[in-house]
Design a protein around this nucleic acid. Structure first.
Lengths: 345, 345
DNA sequence: ATGAAAGCGCTAACAG
DNA sequence: CTGTTAGCGCTTTCAT
């Protein structure tokens, strides 16, 4: 069943069918109705491949993430898909799983399917791999780390704003021993968070020597807390570079019989969905995933709209905000300590 | 840059380029090498749309889920993608978000892109919507609920096996007041779990009147525990129809100062990744998401392999197993109760 | 306003 | 073994 069959049955030319389906305004309403009737009757769906071939536009956007199983991404994918559906786009989702071969393959897949644009949401991607996309002038959008070239949009994250709120929240609760667990510092995003923490602390004149490196995983958070305690003694509050780290801290605290938040306040970063489900629910700095997805999609749509004009790289901005939940409390006074030791199992 | 340009530069015909690229064994190694050199040099990637158009195979598999943000799915999507990559397939991911319009759109999108097969992993989908796919003989694979028609594969889940293990584990820990929180009972999968629970309990002769309906969400788990306690008094163990429910129970228990597992044992179902990250880590019945994805993909691959032959609907089987973590313990004796009341905040 | 026909990039007969 | 050529299903001039 193809356009010709519709044409035959509606007794018009294929051109008219095409026009009717694409709602070209100049077609006679009579004919159009006739066409649509047949279309509905037969349950005809135009072949997108053929369309793409002739039009040169696939109506597919690529979306490159590091791993779908990273809780940061599902929300993004969902929003991206919702927007895609609204705009008659499809999304080609690829994950690099931190594997250079897969990164290369991601790019290849994008090009083979002739995507109209790519959002690169993996925090850290070999520049060289993107050559092919650049060369073909495929519109690109990056988070945090994009180069300033035409057809490349960047979403800049304002880490400081949310982290400052977090630090001041802790200070207001009379915390002074505030620790920070970083992410892997080779990531720009992790470095930026640490820097924001340092700045926020210095702004309010609290000394900051309680810093440990984590790796943005739960296990990393667990061992970071262990190390923190071993090296510096227990802090009264910990700010983490991401939520998974904070979840690790929660978990390790549970193991050590440290009560959250009465004995230790914990703040995460990202506000992944999961942060609402921890015990206790995690206070965290929100970097809205839906907003991020929305910006990325918007950036791509803008680019495809103005493909021809050579315009400057556009900049988008995403701010961060503290979300208060229940993992923070007033700093414990000495007398609070060890009041009711807890014995699990 | 297209196949003709490669042909021109390699001084061969387009047919030869095509053959070389597709590694047809009969091409002269000399020519093949010449072609590949040009291909590499120019960074040429064949246009999949054109390929699909002529071959009639898109090398795309559809994957319909209910919501990507449901923690049950990311693992599945990841595995599915890994397999797709290995087999030079692409995956068209759509979510129904429980919206009939989106379900319909899902099907339409699948057909428009001419997918070679569809895995339907949403537990519950209007049969009528699939007419279009059936009509076009698109290979389908269902979980739990598929009809027995040609080109339709089914993955049957053995719920009983894991649930029986869970019940017996609890019984072995001397629990007798064992409650069950169901999922939404209109879902076959939820009903099957409840039935398996009932059977497992009756097998070992423990009376079972502690049953409440939940809805497979955390909130549902929280209110189910509340209701359970209000109506029947506190049970010593709870088996939940899925992990999110169990997480809700954990959360509500925390609010009520009930210790897990010393005062209350909790078991989930699914073994979503998140189950490892709860405090305490959740003992749960595993229904391997990677295995499920693998079976679904395999089923689709099998179907496309034998498109022509008209063969019977194939059946696949996935078993479930108890994973011991730390949310279960010996049933509390009366003297254990309320020993060390916990006062958070 | 409608139709005839060219052609998007590729593969697969069919010849040679 | 290689080249020529006819389409795959659709959109889009160009005539009418």
């Amino acid at each position: 069943m193809d356009i010709r069959e519709i044409a035959r049955r509606a007794k018009v030319s294929t051109a008219t069918v095409s026009r009717a389906i694409n709602r070209v305004p100049t077609v006679d309403p009579q004919l159009s109705k006739r066409v649509w009737r047949v279309v509905e009757e037969l349950g005809y769906f135009p072949n997108t491949q053929a369309r793409a071939l002739v039009s040169g536009r696939s109506r597919i956007f690529g979306l490159i993430v590091s791993e779908i199983t990273n809780p940061f991404f599902p929300e993004i994918v969902q929003t991206f898909e919702n927007l895609a559906v609204e705009n008659n786009y499809e999304i080609l989702l690829t994950s690099t799983v931190h594997d250079p071969r897969r990164m290369e393959l991601s790019v290849r897949r994008m090009i083979e399917r002739r995507v109209d644009g790519v959002a690169i949401l993996t925090f850290g991607m070999e520049e060289s791999l993107l050559q092919h996309l650049r060369f073909r002038q495929v519109p690109l959008v990056f988070v945090d780390v994009g180069p300033d070239t035409p057809h490349v949009a960047n979403i800049r994250i304002d880490y400081l704003s949310g982290i400052r709120q977090a630090v001041q929240h802790l200070a207001a609760l009379r915390h002074t021993r505030i620790a920070f667990i970083t992410g892997p510092l080779r990531l720009k995003s992790a470095l930026a968070r640490k820097t924001a923490f340092l700045q926020s602390m210095s702004e309010i004149g609290i000394p900051t020597n309680l810093i440990t490196e984590g790796d943005h995983t739960m296990e990393g958070g667990m061992s970071a807390l262990t190390k923190l305690i071993a090296v510096h003694g227990r802090p009264t509050a910990i700010l983490c570079s991401n939520d998974m780290t904070a979840i690790g801290v929660l978990r390790e605290a549970f193991e050590r019989d440290i009560r959250i938040p009465s004995e230790l306040s914990v703040i995460g970063f990202d506000d992944i969905r999961l942060a609402q489900f921890t015990t206790p629910p995690l206070t965290t700095v929100q970097m809205s995933q839906t907003e991020l997805a929305r910006l990325a999609f918007q950036a791509l749509m803008n680019e495809v709209g103005q493909m021809s004009e050579d315009h400057q790289a556009s900049e988008y901005r995403l701010t961060t905000n503290l979300i208060l939940r229940r993992s923070t409390a007033l700093a414990p006074t000495t007398s609070d300590r060890k009041k009711a030791p807890r014995k699990p199992v």
